[in-house]
Design a protein around this nucleic acid. Sequence first.
DNA 1: CCGATTTGCGTACACCGTACGCACGACTGT
DNA 2: ACAGTCGTGCGTACGGTGTACGCAAATCGG
Lengths: 233, 233
Amino acid sequence: MAQRSRGKAIRLTRARVVEEAIRLADAGGFDSLSMRNLADELGTAPMSLYRHVGNKDELLDEMVDVVFGEMYVPVVGGAWKSELRKRGTSARAALNRHPWAIGLMESSKSPGPASAEHHNATMGCLREAGFPFKDAVHAYNLLDAYTYGFALQENTIPFDTPEESAEMAKVTVGERGDEFPYLAEVVVELGKSGYDYTEEFEFGLDVILDALERLKKRASGSERKTALTTSGG
Amino acid sequence: MAQRSRGKAIRLTRARVVEEAIRLADAGGFDSLSMRNLADELGTAPMSLYRHVGNKDELLDEMVDVVFGEMYVPVVGGAWKSELRKRGTSARAALNRHPWAIGLMESSKSPGPASAEHHNATMGCLREAGFPFKDAVHAYNLLDAYTYGFALQENTIPFDTPEESAEMAKVTVGERGDEFPYLAEVVVELGKSGYDYTEEFEFGLDVILDALERLKKRASGSERKTALTTSGG
DNA sequence: CCGATTTGCGTACACCGTACGCACGACTGT
DNA sequence: ACAGTCGTGCGTACGGTGTACGCAAATCGG
């Protein structure tokens, strides 16, 4: 009605719905993304959205694929370590921009095109670097579990500033400092020096990448076949 | 009413509410845990629950602390590597028993007693093993991010059996096998050999623990103070 | 210009968390 | 044994949620 009465407003589109849904979830948190709020934001009625998305889960899948699309896609023939490092940092950045995506990333019944390409390229990067199949799977799981897990902790913890964090933790541990001395140490030390999530993430990422390099060296001399040379030849 | 009419039914308790909530969430999935369903399961009315838990978030916090309580608490003076290995595998096991907990683990405003003890012991294990403070924090983050991340992927992926997994993935990748050759390889190979999550998890865990051991050796000779020797003297 | 198809959306239903306040049972002090 | 207090159960109600259904208006193809 509002749409129709004022002449010809912009047509509703699947893409426009998804885009606005992401904006809404980013701005107001995942809970503020309701079909009703979304409709309001788009200047339409709730049920109008269902002409374009089927249901809310489908909308969420679409949103997740957009987030995948924001991540750096590693070059398959490239230097695996730096490519995967770039992938890792950009994945974390994307998940920080869209924290709601973390819990949804792997829940999609069928991966979208961006997701498929992303996973394919990452796997390809490892295989072409010489990782035997099993090791490539191991490496892949290790990297992704760490990345998602870090993003999960980083974004569910309600620390906005290091000061706030330390303050809250102090209250939390409270008078039980004697009971939990190591926890107390963390609170005190991190309160003094602050806490840089980026530095922390990249430290762990590098530890993992180094470990994978050793794994690769240990396994070198074994199989050498890749998906491309096997199926594409 | 139902409670009162049939003589003297079991009294409602905070513990009983939490316990039944966990059972419900385990059995029917997180979405099936509503105050109304929970009340039904306990044979009471929805509003009766609020005499014992305040609100739903408080209930969830309590549930999370129970899950923490199910994890192995590493011995602070013990052999750090095997202690943390046991902690890792038992943490994953607990998160597998209670998948709904994964997204809630870190969101609690104030950690419960089991959570506090768990974190304190884990940190203590690293510090007493000789990890300098910063490295202990790094190690802690690395281990937890991996553990939670792995559990996250493992439990949000809707694969119940390896066969089902392979079947679904085949449909997913579908005719685009040429477009995503590395993804196709994963589908084919994993379909053949199956996929053992436990083995996969422990492989990654060992890679991380080995990497941490090297980190520790590299940093040996630096600081040696711990929370106990510092504050307890 | 007219019929067909797509698009918008009003209404309605079943669910959710929970504020409020009443009534009943179980304890306490005499 | 009885009265007063208090903790507990819970009925009702409100404002939110996702979405099924079907009508009307706009757009498109001929």
